[in-house]
Amino acid sequence: MANRHLARSVVLQVLFERDAGGGKMTNEEAVQRLADYAKEFGARESDMPFMKNVLQTAIAKQREVDDVIVRAAPEWPLEKIAAIDRNVLRLGLSELLYADRTQVPAKVAINEAIELAKTFGSSSSGRFVNGVLGAVYIELGEPGKNEGSTRKKEATKSGKILTEHLAGAVVYAKNGDETYLAFVHDIFGHWTISKGKVGDKPEISDETIEEAAVREIKEEMGLDIMIREKLGENTYVANDSKVEGGKKKKHVTYFLAESPFSELKLKQTGGLDDAQWFPLAAVGDLNFYDDTLKIIIPAINLLAQRDRK
């Protein structure tokens, strides 16, 4: 058994025991049980930091992860899911959503969870876990799917994949002496930047990227914004069964935009469940995707520079 697979097996035992006890096991008790199980299973001492990190992430993010499970498997109430399957999903999703992908690629997190389900669950556990994690993986845009595929990378570079243009904005507002940022929250537990397609209807097919950003923020959060400056761009490949080849390239242009500090009115969509204002000091505590952070951090730096002037 591979060392990391064994390490995850140890973590799963602790999560299962904690779940069986109604979640009353403290973090300190969980770490102690982890050490006990690690010794019992013969896990390497050098894997203890990895196991501890996976365990503590799964515990800390359990509420968010459980919400994702409920949305990804709506026909299965959480309490009706077999205990092993439920905790395999918690472990797998905590890695899929929150682990450093340079250390734990998305496909590794999924495959490891499936193998755990097959090993410790019922004959149908592997298929069930695969279905739930696969649905979440697709919603995330299948991160890492094209890694190692020269042919697919070259196709993207040569423009053979349809490109869809999107526009979004990091929106800020002043409330007294404090600066606030507005973000939307997706069903996978991440805060992110409001964005949408450019010219996605015949009547607005000739709109500029800036006009699209203004329109999308109004539609998605109910805010009237003024574009201040461009922040950057991001490109990624996503699945789309409606286009030839099943994939398309999404190119997003982000702006820094100002708005009055007013009530946010979230447009109800299948992928978003909340929108909130946050003071600058609180933004660092939010859970963002890595590529989103690359846009948000420069925005915060720009706002900080303006406040100092």
Score class of each variant (00 low, 15 high):
residue 140 L to I: 01
residue 243 V to E: 05
residue 248 K to Q: 11
residue 286 L to P: 00
residue 8 R to S: 10
residue 105 P to Q: 08
residue 9 S to I: 01
residue 259 S to W: 05
residue 293 L to D: 05
residue 199 G to H: 10
residue 165 H to C: 06
residue 256 L to W: 08
residue 149 S to A: 11
residue 63 R to F: 09
residue 225 I to C: 02
residue 141 G to Q: 00
residue 215 R to D: 03
residue 38 A to K: 07
residue 37 Y to E: 12
residue 302 L to S: 15
residue 143 P to L: 00
residue 229 E to L: 08
residue 218 K to P: 01
residue 182 A to C: 02
residue 123 S to V: 08
residue 168 G to A: 01
residue 102 T to W: 07
residue 53 N to R: 14
residue 228 R to E: 11
residue 123 S to N: 14
residue 128 F to M: 03
residue 27 N to Q: 15
residue 234 N to L: 10
residue 263 E to H: 07
residue 75 E to H: 13
residue 264 L to S: 04
residue 207 E to Q: 11
residue 164 E to F: 15
residue 297 I to T: 14
residue 51 M to H: 14
residue 184 V to I: 07
residue 264 L to I: 09
residue 213 A to C: 00
residue 112 E to G: 15
residue 274 D to N: 06
residue 11 V to M: 01
residue 141 G to S: 01
residue 273 D to I: 04
residue 249 K to A: 02
residue 281 A to G: 13
residue 20 A to L: 14
residue 130 N to V: 11
residue 104 V to C: 06
residue 270 G to M: 03
residue 5 H to T: 15
residue 190 H to D: 08
residue 15 L to S: 02
residue 252 V to R: 15
residue 291 D to N: 11
residue 100 D to C: 02
residue 135 A to K: 12
residue 235 T to P: 03
residue 79 E to W: 11
residue 295 I to E: 00
residue 63 R to S: 13
residue 72 A to V: 03
residue 301 N to V: 11
residue 182 A to N: 05
